[in-house]
């Protein structure tokens, strides 16, 4: 049984302008100790998916349906009390911006200890010792002294380490990392990713890595979900997605990775803007931006279907497989040629 099994998850927000479909029928699962990468542009619904699982959406405006089975228990219908027990102890989350995710008026040590004492009946002293242990584990120099520092006395990378330490303090079974490296500079990004991988091995947690960076996914994910406009565009193992991408949106994402290529002066970009989820496009939601658009794409929303020779690899595109295989091969050949 999968650790977390999300089926047909939908989250809509009521706004003054109408109902925004932030997540519209997303399914995926995470196994024990595995890493799932969720990729997509800003506003594709990646973060909201995870916030819904955690029950952290604003209650007054958000409506959700579907199921999110956590060890056989549906998180969407769980009581607030039960959700609080799970949050922070079984499922922990790291956020995008470490600069604003820590409370500026409390000491680091107190914030870490609070995370532990919320779930375990331990003394302040024990919690503090555990906090220190975690700060050392995430590589904070002179951790003993830094326990009594405030967040503003840390750099961005160090604060993200603190966030990671805080999320791991109760040995969670699942760690959700919502773009943990986006707000950091490149060298720090690499350090944080390596750290998450290392700690994942050490603690045995499963990880959901939300990112818009395919490079990050290629590096650490076992499975990949590509999201576009609140829906899953393509889903499969990391090998399948990267060796044989089947959706024009995935090709676009791959094509827009920066390369060391003298001939290309600008990054190849996906034309147009992500659609407004107030009024999503008819048919396939990617059709207004798709270079391979066909008449059927404007009418019928393609279902998520397995690739013929590979049942674990799902995609939603009307293009015939022959064209897809050809285009994917072309794209990869181009990338390989540049790489060599």
């Amino acid at each position: 049984m999968a650790l977390l099994e999300v089926t047909d998850l939908k989250t809509y927000f009521r706004t003054d302008d109408g109902v925004v479909r932030a997540v519209d029928g997303v399914s995926f699962s995470v196994d024990k100790g595995q890493t799932l990468g969720i990729v997509g542009e800003s506003g594709s619904g990646k973060s909201v998916t995870c916030l819904t699982i955690m029950g952290l959406n604003p209650k007054r405006t958000a409506m959700s349906s579907g199921t999110a089975m956590w060890k056989g228990e549906d998180l969407l219908t769980a009581t607030p009390k039960r959700l609080r027990e799970i949050r922070g102890s079984e499922i922990a989350m790291i956020f995008q911006d470490p600069m604003t995710s820590l409370n500026p008026v409390h000491k680091i040590g107190a914030q870490l200890a609070e995370a532990m004492r919320l779930h375990e009946d331990v003394s302040k002293k024990t919690a503090r010792a555990r906090a220190l242990e975690l700060l050392k584990a995430v590589g904070i120099p002179r951790a003993e002294r830094r326990l009594d520092d405030y967040p503003h006395q840390f750099s961005g990378g160090m604060r993200q380490r603190v966030m990671i330490a805080m999320s791991l303090i109760n040995n969670p079974d699942l760690l959700i990392a919502d773009e943990p490296t986006t707000a950091l500079d490149v060298t720090t990004q690499a350090q944080i990713l390596t750290l998450i991988e290392k700690l994942q091995e050490e603690f045995g947690s499963a990880v959901i890595m939300i990112t818009h960076d395919l490079g990050v996914v290629a590096e650490i994910a076992d499975d990949v979900v590509v999201m576009y406009a609140a829906e899953v565009a393509e889903k499969g193992g990391v090998e399948q997605i990267f060796k044989k991408p089947h959706h024009p949106y995935t090709w676009g994402l791959m094509g827009s990775l920066p390369r060391l290529d003298a001939d290309v002066e600008r990054l190849v970009q996906i034309q147009g803007q992500p659609p407004s989820m107030l009024r999503p496009p008819t048919g396939c939601r990617f059709h207004p931006r798709c270079p391979y658009v066909m008449p059927i794409c404007k009418e019928v929303d393609p279902a998520l279907a397995p690739v013929s020779d590979d049942p674990g690899h799902l995609q939603s595109c009307h293009l015939d497989e022959e064209t897809k295989n050809r285009e994917a091969a072309k794209l990869l050949a181009g990338m390989m040629a540049e790489a060599s």
Partner: peptide, 9 residues
Amino acid sequence: YVRTARAKG
């Protein structure tokens, strides 16, 4: 940080 606090449970 308020969301963080809720995420801590």
